[in-house]
Design a protein around this nucleic acid. Sequence first.
DNA 1: TAGAGCATGTAAGGCGTTACATGATTTC
DNA 2: GAAATCATGTAACGCCTTACATGCTCTA
Lengths: 185, 185
Amino acid sequence: MQEPRGLTDFEQILLGLLARSPSSGYELKKFFAATPAVVYQPSSGALYPALCRLERRGLLSAEQAPSAGKRRQRRYQLTPAGQAAHASWLRQPVEPSTVGADLGTHLMRFVMAERVLAPEEVLSFLDELASALETFIATIADYLTTAPLPGCHPRLALRHGIEVHQASLDWVRSAVETLRAAPSN
Amino acid sequence: MQEPRGLTDFEQILLGLLARSPSSGYELKKFFAATPAVVYQPSSGALYPALCRLERRGLLSAEQAPSAGKRRQRRYQLTPAGQAAHASWLRQPVEPSTVGADLGTHLMRFVMAERVLAPEEVLSFLDELASALETFIATIADYLTTAPLPGCHPRLALRHGIEVHQASLDWVRSAVETLRAAPSN
DNA sequence: TAGAGCATGTAAGGCGTTACATGATTTC
DNA sequence: GAAATCATGTAACGCCTTACATGCTCTA
């Protein structure tokens, strides 16, 4: 029995979307297309095979064209195993080394954690995210002062990194405030 | 003659690094490893084939272990065609639709433009970047007010997008100021 | 009935990852 | 002389992209 390798981010996100509401592949495509903030537009060749993989793993189940016309349509929903996999993804600790790239994945987790995780779990996720961001910012700031950088563009680019991640950090802190003020809504 | 598909971002970045100073594959690896802001660590299986592809296209040339010991080593440098491809990458207009994801690529272009592009070309690149960011921010802000979003986490996540990209925009403006004040250094 | 959109999928090809392979050189 | 590091590469495998294929359903 070979290790069943972990799910990709894309697969986890599909799981999260289907946890909110069962959908067909086409509806998922429309969702991605309609959301301007999500700048990823999965192709058919990525989406349908991913759904098949999740189904083969027993994380999704599909019901064939139940309602309305006879137009074939596979509406997917999570199995209990799928829900478990999704919840475990949401509960994964924030890996500090990943905060420099793909902040998007963390944001996705935050969005999907609503109503799945307990409010205090969400707050501790944000705490982890905040300290990962602090560490990352400190690392760049240190590199900026100590490393011998040729020219002025590299320094400016590092300042960009600091300022953008500082903005993320500020956001995390204000989000914590917001959620503390109105824990459930 | 089939279209020679464009270079990947990774290949372009390799070209940019080698334009600064000819290096071996191993030195490039060390560079990626040593830079904390660059959160990508190319594997051997990505790096060496990429260098070979660039060489086969005639964009790089390699000299075999010239100096010191007889340890085999391939030191790459740009051919004239490679320099042309690199400059053309740097001069590519900022595609507004790409500004939501991979801001990193734009930053890379900015860093590598120093001393390759004329100061006014750099400034116009930053202008393009600024207006792309403005558009993106406005799009999210509009979506935030008009779209029916379930729950409070999605709204918070969109605010994150706005604030982070606003920080980028502020940085662009201050970078323009800095560069205008000290055009060459 | 012709066309546009719905809805799912497949095939070829490219690139990256992980892991392994292979020598040469320096260090203890 | 053994071990670590230098330095380059290859093989298996997986996923995504582009492009195409296939039917069904609604509208003009």
